[in-house]
Structure formats: C-alpha cells, structure tokens
C-alpha cells in the first residue's frame, strides 16, 4: 500500500503537509488545577495538572531544593485501542511515554519558579489513532496553561514520515504508522524553534532528515497557532464575566 496516491493525496485524503482536524477545550474538569481535552483526528486525549504543591510520597526525597519536581503519568484507557489492552498503565510502553512526556514538558516549564514543590501532569488516552505522544504533549501544554503554571513557551509535538522515499508527510495517523513508513516524532518550542525531544523509528537516508524534520517543525508551528487561538478564546470567554472582550461596535467597553 502506498502512503501517497498518484494524485498526491494520503490514505485519509489529506495533502502531505496537512494536519488532522484539531479540536480542543481547556478547563474540562473543576477539581483539577488545570485540565484540557484535545482531539487530533480520531486520537482523543485528556490531560490534568495538579500543583504546584508540596512534594508527596517518593518525591519528598527526590524533589530538588531549587526547582519544581515534575511528575508525569501516561495511561491509556483499556478500550482506547482496536484490541483491548490488559492494563491501562505500568507497562513498558507507558513508562517510556511518561519519561518522554516529562522531557518535553520540563524544557518548557519554568521549574525554577517553584522550588521545593511538585507538579503532577496526568494524561489519559481515551482513543488511540496514531500520534498519541504528540496529542498528549499538546493537551498537557493546554492543561499547564489552564493551571497557570509559568512556562517559557508552549511545548508542541508533531510527527512526520516519508512517503515514496522522497515526500515528507506531517501528522501521521495510525494507518500510516502501521503501514510501515518511517516515523519521526518531534517535541519543540515553536517560537524559538528549539527541539525538546526527537525520536525516530524505521530508517531512511540521512539526506532526507533535514526536510522531514523541517516538515515536523512546520507542523509544530501550525499546531502552536491552533493552541494559542484556543487559549486566547478560552481566556476571553472565562474573563467575560468581568466584562473583558465585550466591546461593542464603537469600540467602547460595555
């Protein structure tokens, strides 16, 4: 099966540089300090943030004195995949995901602002359809913003692949992942253009790396724009009770 048709369209009808539809919402839960829900195509993810609070349990010994201890947990609902999973968390794959999630988010969070405290970030994949890691990073970023945690900039992740040995594809779906093309996942800080995490599976010639990486970073920038819009809209809506954003035609604040 070819990843790209003769007409230049992908298996799900997207163009090579087209993202899946992203829909997201901040503040889905009341009890958490911050929460967000994000849909990227058919991948659906929930993220919550608790803290900064006093270090609990094992973190009490591990928490550094000059910055916050960031604790991440990645779990998947047992019904999230095509085949039912036996455990929602604790398997190797989830543990690896938790570590990678932590790496990407710590590079964006201003941990030095919260010495001697702990920050919990929990993500739950409700439905998996490729790009789980990317959706989790993006949802966690929104949840962190919702919690009011100080950040350098957004941490945004996006994946890319290579079709027909030459054309880079952005935002890989499960079908494209399993068809066996290479998969490059990048978490970046899109404003400064820095790479926070990069992971690659399968092989392609190193000559192609720059353009695949560029496509992934481009995707990160596009997602950043979507997330930023969501944040602005959310703040406008929640602030509306106090009259923000309610400007009439003459430009006078009501």
């Amino acid at each position: 099966m070819d990843l790209l048709s003769d007409q230049g369209l992908r298996l799900d009808g997207r163009r090579p540089d087209e993202l899946r539809n992203i829909r997201c919402k901040m503040g889905v839960f009341n009890q958490a300090d911050g929460s967000a829900y994000l849909e990227q195509g058919n991948t659906k993810v929930l993220a919550t943030v608790y803290g900064p609070h006093q270090p609990r349990g094992q973190a009490r010994n591990r928490a550094p004195h000059d910055e916050a201890f960031v604790n991440c947990q990645y779990s998947m609902a047992v019904f999230s995949t095509g085949e039912r999973k036996n455990r929602p968390r604790g398997d190797r794959k989830s543990q690896e995901m938790s570590i990678h999630l932590r790496q990407a988010l710590v590079s964006a969070i201003r941990t030095e602002l919260y010495p001697r405290s702990q920050l919990d970030i929990f993500v739950e994949v409700l439905q998996a359809d490729g790009g789980n890691y990317c959706a989790c990073v993006n949802a966690a970023t929104l949840a962190l913003v919702d919690a009011g945690v100080g950040m350098r900039e957004y941490a945004v992740a996006c994946s890319a692949s290579l079709a027909n040995g030459e054309i880079p594809l952005v935002d890989i779906s499960h079908l494209e992942e399993s068809t066996g093309g290479p998969n490059l996942t990048v978490a970046s800080l899109p404003i400064s253009g820095q790479v926070a995490l990069m992971e690659m599976s399968q092989r392609f010639h190193s000559d192609h790396l720059p353009k695949v990486l560029e496509r992934a970073l481009e995707g990160c920038k596009d997602i950043h724009r979507i997330l930023d819009d969501t944040v602005r809209k959310h703040v406008e809506e929640t602030g509306r009770a106090s009259g923000w954003g309610q400007v009439d035609r003459a430009g006078i604040v009501l």
Partner: peptide, 16 residues
C-alpha cells in the same frame, strides 16, 4: 467489569 481510577480524578489514584 474492570474499573480504572484514573489519576486525572485525584493525584491519590496515581500508579496503583
């Protein structure tokens, strides 16, 4: 029946 208390609900549900 399988019940999963997600850590999203409260940090006390983290891990096991």
């Amino acid at each position: 029946f399988f019940v999963d208390c997600s850590a999203n609900a409260t940090p006390e549900f983290e891990g096991k």
